[in-house]
Design a protein around this nucleic acid. Sequence first.
DNA 1: AGCACGATTAACT
DNA 2: GTTAATCGTGCTC
Length: 203
Amino acid sequence: MAPPRQHDFLPRSFFDRPTQTVARELLGCRLVRKLGGAPLVGAIVETEAYIGERDLACHAKAGRTPRTQIMYGPPGFAYVYFTYGMHWMLNLVTEAEGFPAAVLIRAFEPQEGIARMQELRGGKPLSQLASGPAKLTQALGIARGENGMDCCRSDSPLTLTRGEVVPPSSVVATPRIGLGQTPEPWLSKPWRFVIRGNGFVSR
DNA sequence: AGCACGATTAACT
DNA sequence: GTTAATCGTGCTC
């Protein structure tokens, strides 16, 4: 197998699959953010799957609303939402058009553009630049304006490329974080995926 | 029109 | 371990 290359973009078909599969396979892939100047790049190390209206942890539990409509659209688009009065979260829409689901990108390992990300994060140390979903959007300059962006176009300001393949034995699945009063069985579904032993995951 | 709460973080004790 | 910060969203009246 040839080593992965910088411009090996993830196609829309990558996202047009079961959300757990996409969440697991996004581990190790690179997020490439163009924000003027050199691209900001990192390898994804932590994700979570949110799957349809019946998943009571998923925003789509409220049905089709102005906020959730992007999740009902075609896969490969960015769903960026605001929470806790101050934080932005980055998700990638999955599965076929009409089925609302997405993968939350919770953490990545910074690889390129580290100085710029550090500026955006107020001088935090490398291990804390993107070790959480809101830290990651801050490090990449992602907010309201990036909602609805098509990440499958090579000229997009936000794209994904293949990285080092993470074998199943290196993937740990756990319950999702921060679900509060979400009822079972959704509270305990093991739909959070992390790279085993990686030092850049959230808290 | 008003309200409770949230897929979090940083700064506390 | 605890808690303030801070406001868009969806639900109720």
